[in-house]
Structures are given as C-alpha cells and as structure tokens.
C-alpha cells in the first residue's frame, strides 16, 4: 500500500476517532461477554447450591434462566455490535476513504 496514503489516513482526525471509538466499543462488549460467561463458570465452580435453588414453588432452578441468559446475551451483544459497526462505523470509514482519495 502507498506509504503516502497511509500517512494521510493516520493524520486524519476522523480516522483516529473511528479507531478509538470502535476499539473501545469492542473492548467493552468483549469484557461484558467475559464477565457474563466467566461469572457463570465461577458460579458453577464455587456455588453449585445457588444455581440449584428452585424458583418460587417449582422445580425450575435459578440456573436455568441464568444459562439461557448467557446464551441470549451472546446473541444480543453481537446484535448491538453489528448495528453500530454496520451503521455509524461503516459510514465514518466511507467518509475517511472518500476524503483521503481526493
């Protein structure tokens, strides 16, 4: 790739804004997924009785909705990322490319 073009992009404030915004967004979501999942794993490892506690008056335990919550949260977090990345971030990328190619 042309070194001049790279320098131009790197000097573009909008590019730096994009990189900053996207990486912090991705980092936050990754940490959320890690917290949710390893929180669940640590509960399994250290507090099995809590997960096996039945919900009010039935046989369904707290562990069932929690497990389903981890699955659903994985889907929702990917949805949140794709929505912003395919909208806001892609638009910014397009603008940057148009500007530097002039």
């Amino acid at each position: 790739m042309d070194p001049e073009l790279i320098a131009k992009i790197k000097a573009n404030p909008q590019y730096n804004e994009l990189v900053r915004k996207r990486s912090s967004f991705a980092r936050i979501l990754t940490v959320m997924m890690l917290l949710i999942y390893f929180g669940f794993v640590l509960l399994v490892a250290f507090n099995k009785p809590l997960l096996a506690t039945p919900l009010a008056g039935g046989v369904t335990t707290i562990g069932i909705p929690l497990g389903v919550f981890v699955i659903v949260s994985a889907f929702i977090l990917t949805g949140i990322y794709v929505r912003r990345a395919n909208g806001e971030f892609d638009n910014m990328t397009k603008e940057i490319i148009e500007k530097v190619k002039k």
Binding site: A26, R27, L29, T30, M33, I36, Y37, F40, V41, V44, L51, A52, T61, G63, I64, G67, V70, I71, A74, L77, T78, Y81, V82, A85
Partner: peptide
C-alpha cells in the same frame, strides 16, 4: 440434566469474541 447446558453455553460464547476482535 443441567450439566449439558453448561457445555452448550461454553460452545456459544466464542462467537461474540470472534465478532468483536477478529471477524472484520
């Protein structure tokens, strides 16, 4: 019973990580 769910959860959570860090 429940142990099966623990496994399936683990098999799913790699996907968001692929998206956030790797895919694009």
């Amino acid at each position: 019973g429940y142990d099966g769910l623990i496994f399936s959860v683990g098999w799913l959570v790699g996907w968001p990580v692929i998206l956030f860090l790797i895919a694009e």
